[in-house]
Design a protein around this nucleic acid. Structure first.
Lengths: 338, 338
DNA sequence: CTGTTAGCGCCTTCAC
DNA sequence: GTGAAGGCGCTAACAG
């Protein structure tokens, strides 16, 4: 790349068109009080120079930028990707621009501060509103619209979009119970996590309703990772009385559980049934394809955008918590007990 | 959201810490000429207020932002998503921040101008360098580093990362030829597209080398979409002498071709073999799983970042065009001819 | 209809 | 070691 060419500013355009910067600004913002002829001349110069107003400078002065920001600690994991897909489409459909941000320089212990910093950096200057994916913080200090997707906590000061975790877990359990399973293991997420708690409640209530005991030995606390899924499953399957089915509270840990079962020489679903939660794209292509709960992550992204734009455009919010319905996707990782 | 709280500025921090904004700025940028005690006090206030310097304001003044931008017309299609995954990881590993941007307001006829505008908007202010995904333009007017992933054209003024399209197509064809197919249909992308041209060349050269004729009836120009794949396949399969195999130049059109074959009552791979190109995640979970050419899109993203950072940090570039190798992934959509 | 003026929040000289 | 002043590129009053 030649690094010589200076990128043209509004001054260059003004000079070339023989008008003041104000006039150029008016053209840029489609104000109607410019003579058609002047308007066209400025437009021509803009095209000729390949000029576009600097996002930074523009953001500093104008209250509205028509940009929506998305913050995620990482764009390399399935949940975030699915949210981004949904958000991307909804944002452009609404005529806004999207800027999705990640950054380095954060550790497990500093995420909350990192989240707040990202919010402060963007909101009110670059973006008109923000979507935060799986935020840890209860509260964000910002004067501008902000919506969360699947926050860690339940009582947040900001509006949030979540899956109907409870109903999804119930559906998964009813599927397993319907297949005749009586001893069903559970691999959860960290207890601090709202989604994990709701899913576990679904697990327990389903057992209660079926008048089955809740056996603490069958309930493992993992952390939604592949590794924790594998380790928890290993423990469950080596119990004196192992379960005949496992409900893992997310797909990644279900994959780990599948791995652990295999390592113990168990066939899936013949020897052990496994059901997940999330329906990430990968779950369709594992062997066997995973029966799981679809939480339509894209829809969550779309809903977040809808709420955010309502907020930005000052329309009243009907609710602070949108629950997106879940549905069971039956594939081949669970079968009727022999 | 309470929309009352103003987001704190450097002035608020300065006031609260009892120093000047200059001092706060020095702390923010880790300059060493601040008394340790002052430094700490300012830091404390920053945390307490949840302050972070506005990206817009900072971008306007400082030359380096440690942000890398990515521009794509859309984040809701598999190729872009895969690039983003690779880029995201590489960028954070390198200690930079990533901002990925899309916007509405562009049509088929205005993409080139749109691309240029995005570049002008970001580069040199918000971002230190830019990655453009599948750019149409030959040239970008920018004084700052820019790298393309899979550009439309071959001779670009900017460095680019591409897959080894030719070798990939050859591999796909040699697979089909090895399975005994003699009449192989081809569904390409638009002729203006560099990747489409290279893949078609691979198709033709493979036939030549096998001393098979190149039958124009068997060569269809599509546009890499599902619909065009379906339509092209329909035409191929209703030929007087239909092919026994189809090589589609990308996975999406291969999916369309599968659809068309089914609609005609053909079984895959028993009646017709189909091979794709891309190896997007979906291709593993179609029925049957698609035999395709893996162009390791993530690696392309990673390479783009590597080059870009070299450029940003003024290291010399060894080459202007990085070719990422491709490899055939054999699944179940192609079989030996009966 | 158009231009002049005054900042937005920050970083960079240059004083002290 | 610290602060005051100026300006980055742009938009929003206010004049004319």
């Amino acid at each position: 790349m030649p690094r010589t060419k200076r990128v043209p500013t509004i001054h260059d355009v003004a000079a070339a068109a023989g008008v003041s910067v104000t006039t150029v600004s008016r053209v840029l913002n489609n104000k109607d009080d410019v003579a058609p002829e002047t308007f066209q001349r400025v437009l021509d110069v803009i095209h000729e120079l390949g000029y576009a107003s600097s996002l930074a400078a523009r953001s500093m002065r104008s209250r509205r930028t028509r940009m929506i920001g998305l913050i995620t600690p990482n764009m390399d994991y399935p949940f975030a990707i699915e949210v981004i897909k949904g958000v991307s489409r909804a944002v452009t459909d609404a005529g806004y621009d999207l800027i999705a941000c990640t950054s380095a320089y954060k550790t497990e212990s500093t995420v909350e501060r990192w989240e707040q910093q990202q919010v402060a950096r963007l909101n009110g200057t670059i973006t008109d509103g923000l979507i935060v994916v799986v935020p840890r913080a209860h509260v964000f200090r910002t004067a501008f619209p902000l919506v969360a997707v699947d926050p860690h906590h339940r009582d947040t000061s900001y509006p949030a979009v979540v899956a109907d975790n409870y109903a999804g877990a119930r559906a998964a359990m009813e599927h397993l119970l319907g297949l005749g399973h009586l001893r069903i293991g559970y691999i959860g997420g960290r207890a601090g996590l709202q989604s994990a708690r709701r899913r576990q409640k679904g697990y327990e209530d389903a057992l209660c309703e079926a008048e089955l005991p809740i056996d603490p030995d069958l309930i493992m606390e993992g952390d939604y990772t592949y590794e924790s899924g594998r380790e928890c499953a290993r423990q469950l399957l080596t119990l004196a009385q192992p379960p005949t089915a496992i409900f893992a509270a997310n797909d990644e840990s279900a994959f780990g559980a599948i791995d652990a079962a295999r390592a113990l020489g168990l066939r899936i679903p013949d020897d052990i049934s496994i059901v997940g939660f999330d329906n990430i794209p990968e779950s369709a292509s594992t062997v066997p394809p995973l029966t799981t709960v679809d939480q339509t992550i894209r829809v969550m992204g779309r809903e977040a955008v809808r709420i955010l734009i309502d907020l930005i455009e000052n329309r009243p919010l009907e609710t602070n918590l949108v629950q997106v319905p879940t549905s069971l996707v039956v594939r081949s990782s669970a079968r009727r007990i022999r």
